[in-house]
Structure formats: structure tokens, C-alpha cells
Amino acid sequence: MRPKIAYKNRLALILAGLTAFIFLCGFSFGKVYVTLDMRDYTLYREIPAEEIFDALAADKQSTKASYDNEYCAVFGKLKAVAKDGRSFEIAPAEGFDSKTIHCILNDSFQGEFPPAGDPLYVLGKMRISLFGAGSCSMEADGLRRASSRLAQSETYLTLNGDNIRPDHMSARVFGKDSITKEPIVRLAIPKSFEAVEEELPEQKDQPKLDGYLYRLNELEDTRSSKPEQFYIFWFDNEKQLLDQNDKNRSQDIARAIIRNILPGENIRLGRFPIRRTVYGNEYIYYDTAYTGYNAEFVFKPCGDDGLLCMLYVYRNSDHKKDILSIFRFVE
């Protein structure tokens, strides 16, 4: 009988060990802090409430494709607030208000509601339901009072009161599709970055990188003696991988890039990979330090073609908001 008991104990020990291991893995991955966290500076796409209702009436399927899970700043008027103070309804700012958007505020909101009937922006994540004629609701992160619509052209609002217009940004493209010859990644950088932009220099025994370095501390509004640098470049699998069979191993390619740029870096399990979904795109993060600076890598895998790579090296992240705004325009 004794061996049977020992076997059961051992089995229990193994199971307990495995459970603890998985538990530890899951929790350590979830708590890792990243500097370039979209939640610190989310850009909400400005849109009037009536436009969503019009879109739903025209084609609810395409409305869902366009707006579901999208971070939006919906302009309307406050119709009613529930007694719990967490849920409320908004209607189009003008005209009939038989249609409303049901909004639920997240727990961190500490502000006050304007009087019923006042125009406002609700900033949050849009949810589109296809049930019946289609409806929409919002997980609201905050409110912004506004006497009228802020802009007729494409604009993005933030919780801290900034308004960002894509036509005040500059387009950049990275990579080239081998068949269509079209760029693989398109994004936009703040126009101010152009003043400190330089192409990445060619390194010995390396193909020239398709990318830029931004010396942000040299911008007129900063002129700091402490370097703050942002690199963005395209890693081309075909040009730079030794074994083309590794093309689909994005995570391991990201690890190899980190080790190439920071030789001797001890990349520990639990600190890599940190995965975050930013405006619907999947990114791999790695946060570390480099000779007295914070260094944060961000990778966007793009199939077998390569990776869009970003590296932020800084002591004082004075331009963190500007960099975070770039993520909104990555396509």
C-alpha cells in the first residue's frame, strides 16, 4: 500500500507545482509596466451621435466593422443620468432625440455631469450591436463639455483636453510588399518631429535600415541636456534573417533584435514578451534600462514580411504623449 500513497503524493505535488507555475506565469505577465501605454494617452476619434445613427440605419454590418471597439469621442447632448451616477444616455445634439446611446462610465471617472440637455463629448469605447435594427452603447472613460462641435474635419480628442488633427501630422511608410510594391506599414508622426528627424545611418555589415531617429530632447520646446531618443525602423525578414524558415517566429525575431541592439541583455521569462493590443493592433513590448536610460522596445509583427520596430530611449519622457499619438495612425 505504501508505494501507492507515495505515488499519489508525488502526483499531487507535480500538479500543485504546475498550477503554481502557470499561476505565476500568468500573473507576472499581466503586471509588467510599459511606458508607452496607450491608456495613458488615448486618442478618441471625434464623431457626432447622429452620424452613428445614420450609419446604423444605412448598413448596420458596415457600421459594426467601422465603429465596434473603436475609441470614439461622441458629440451629443446629455439626456438622462441614472441614479447610480455611473450610467447615462446621450442623444444627437440637434433635432429629434428618440434614439440614444447608452453609456456606462468606468470606475475611475471622478468628474461631474453637466445639466441634462447640455452638449458634451463622451469619450470611450464604442459597442455596436446587430440585434434588431442595430444599436450602440459606450464604455465611457470620461466626458468633455463643449458648447458646439469642435471640428468638422477629422479630429481626435484626449481626456486631458488635447485635440489632435491628422492633417497636422506627417505620413511615413515602411517596408515594401514584394508583389504589390506597396508599403507594408503606414503611420503618421507629429509634424514637429521633422525638425529632429534623421535617417538611420548604415552600420557596418548590415543592410541600411529603413527608418528614422528622432532626437526629441533637441526640439525647440525642450533643449534638454538629457537625451530622449525615439527610433522607428522596419526589420526586413528577407534581408536580415539568416534562416528564412524563421520568418514566422515574430516573438523570437523580436528577442534577437533586442539582443543585437543590447548585447548581453538578460531577457527574463516574465518580462518578455509583454503583449498589448493598441487600437486593434498587436504589439510586443520589452522594457529595460540602458546605461542610465530607460529603454523600451515595441514591435509590431507584420506577417512573414518583417516587423515594425520602435525603440524609446530616455530619462525624462517629455514627449511620451507625442509618441503615443503615433500609435493611433499605424496601419
Binding site: L200, P201, Q203, K204, D205, Q206, L209, Y231, F233, F235, K239, Q240, L241, L242, D243, D246, R249, D252, I253, R255, A256, I257, N260, I261, L262, P263, Y290, A295, L311, V313
Partner: peptide, 13 residues
Amino acid sequence: EVKLKSNRPLIDL
């Protein structure tokens, strides 16, 4: 591990 064609740094930080 994934290996790059060259061990030289992509970026000289």
C-alpha cells in the same frame, strides 16, 4: 534562437 545575418548592431546606441 533566431539568428540574424550579421551580428553587428542594427543601431549603435
